[in-house]
Design a binder for these strands. Structure first.
Lengths: 224, 224, 224, 224
DNA sequence: TATGAATGAGGGTTCATTCAT
DNA sequence: CATGAATGAACCCTCATTCAT
């Protein structure tokens, strides 16, 4: 999935028959999840259609109720999988093992790159916030997923301050929110921004420029 | 309207009869627009119900079609009114008449305050971006609304650089997007953020802290 | 009005403002009647829209209720005017003053020509028969309008039989119905006929050929 | 179904529950089609109500969309079935195996009888022509359905001319249209005809008389 | 006489979900 | 486990008509 692909339905022409044989629970579940992610991302919770998800995943509509209980259950599952994915990818960076400034820089670059590569993450968060996180709150595992991130950031900020390379007193949560903000808003609002400013936000050069700008802003802020 | 009010429908118990006498086109139109803003903000385009808008505005459902042509026409009208409102409030700041650093600081504070006070702006932009600005593109007056902002920022950045109080080479559009980002993302995603970080984002102290943080970040970036 | 003009609405672009000054009851009534004839002809009773009639006639919708009481009253008025028109045109032929065979031939040619030139007559009769003449029965003047026609035909058939130029015993009503049939069915069903036979029924050559055929059939039948 | 039954809805009191068990797609489809034929015949396309069709057929309204896509799709299906029925009944006459004059006489009698027995055929054609065959044109199989009729007529006219029992040079399509005309117009317009001529067209004696008249007209025309 | 706002009933259609096989 | 028919509640929208000016 990439940031510039068209998301409208009719031209999509997804293969309606998946090559899995019958009675393969794991693949059925995965196929539904994949199709649902796409649909919820493109239309939101209310706009998404159970029929469309069934058709796209090539499974019978009844299976959605079998595996996920219903549209909302499926939506929650998509949400969990989406958050889980980014946090695991983040974990793979092993930010705790690097030098403080380097670690934060890496997090900035990773975050920006991840947002570009996973537009469903942006859309789903937007949708979930429209609903005031009503569904995310139902998920028990979500909060645990985020403590390592805060812990690592906190640790590196403290070490950086000690070493004199980072200004002291920075709140790790504020910092993370700002790192996310600078990329998230640009990408998730790129359609209205392009319209009001009359300038493409999607082409590689613009994305590259924005990436550099974000690094500049964060580094300026960290500077002691 | 404020950022913390409950938005669910049933408990809302809005006065079903508006106090306007009949045959008042101006008030009818305004009442529809107000109710629609609320409904689109709370539910998005797909989730919004025409019936609910009619009920809340106290007018006959048919009038929505009379004045706005339909649900989408009404949505476009809401979008235009919403953008128009922020740009006019911005214009009232007369940023061009101030000192460069002061002007930008004022813009930062204004933007943050405006986002807090107008949650419908955040939601509607999220909704519109879910639809890839399909409706905003239909509005002809939108782009003209934004050129003064860019012009003013550009002018003040140049003056600031000349005077040696602002680092040279800053792109005004990138800067504005960053200013908006730091507040927009925090507020529009406050529900998921509160959930994943297990910390309120909505109380006055948190809002105050975030406001100061944003100023810090922007000022650090502007510093030569 | 002619047999081949397109009748769909959107491209029609009728002048929405008629050049009459205000307060001209006669013209207002006539404008409504003209627009209604067009609309009922093109859409039938159920398909016709009061709004469309008002717009096309350039008068306020309320006037339709003022002058005709409502949609059905207007429809009855259109029906009466339509029948009245053909019978008056028929009367102008003065068929009673001609030789028997000549009179009947003239009636055949007139009927065919009138049907071609007045497609609204065909459509309105079709619509009225769908409703089992429910509205025509409300009109008191309709029946009197038709006795002269039957009387004249009867008279000429008798004279022709006496003179030996027309076979005796022909029922004038059966004959008239047949004369009307041969043209009416061809023209009112020309769209389905063209489709099932894969051959145009509307071009001048086809109309000419059908006219000759009808004359042949009637004359063969009259032959003693 | 016969020509004289009342078609208005309220007194009809159709059994609202059909005796078919659930889960019988074939019967469900057929029940919808039967109810739709009745409704479109009585009210035309615009006047027909999807709710009424659902109620009469005893199936859930949703099924109409499941099987036919919508009101128009259902109408097209009704149209196809109606045309298909008359052409198949016609085919069963095996007109090609008879003597020329006899074959044509049989066609005349069959057509008249079929029109009397299938008033829905008349009404649906009227409705379809009001819409200028817009829907019939969508049907691919319609034209093929009619070539055998023209071929047979053509063949018999040629043979009759050879044998000297039919006048040469008769166009088979014109002849067929005339045969249909003489019965179709009488029956489909019987309500207005009865009103303007003040004479019943529906009683058995009148139908019998009209049948004989039609034969007379056609035979007179065929006579060499 | 003329106008355009206002109305309530009902139009076709779509939806998430469940049932029978 | 899997299927497609079946359901009833809404949803957006349209209509003929009336009201207030």
């Amino acid at each position: 999935m990439d940031a510039t692909s068209s998301e409208t339905d009719p031209p999509k022409a997804v293969p309606p028959k998946r090559p899995t044989g019958p009675r393969d629970p794991v693949r059925t579940r995965a196929a539904i999840l994949e199709a649902a992610t796409h649909e919820f991302r493109a239309k939101g919770l209310t706009g998404a259609r159970v029929d469309t998800i069934a058709k796209r995943s090539g499974v019978n509509k009844r299976m959605i109720y079998h595996y996920f209980g219903g549209k909302e259950g499926l939506y929650v599952a998509v949400l969990e999988a989406t958050y889980s994915a980014i946090r695991h990818a983040e974990g793979d960076l092993h930010l705790g093992d690097r030098e403080p400034l380097d670690a934060i820089c890496e997090l900035v670059r990773f975050t920006w790159r991840y947002f570009i590569d996973h537009p469903e993450f942006l859309s789903l968060l937007g949708t979930e916030n429209l609903h005031r996180a009503r569904f995310l709150k139902q998920s028990s595992r979500i909060r645990d997923l985020h403590s390592p991130l805060v812990a690592t950031l906190s640790h590196q900020l403290a070490r950086g301050a000690e070493k004199g390379v980072i200004r002291p007193g920075i709140d790790p949560v504020q910092l993370y929110i700002s790192i996310a903000s600078l990329g998230f808003f640009y990408l998730s609002n790129r359609y209205t921004l392009a319209t009001i400013f009359g300038r493409s936000m999607d082409d590689p050069a613009s994305l590259e420029a924005r990436g550099r700008h974000i690094e500049d802003v964060v580094l300026a802020y960290l500077r002691p």
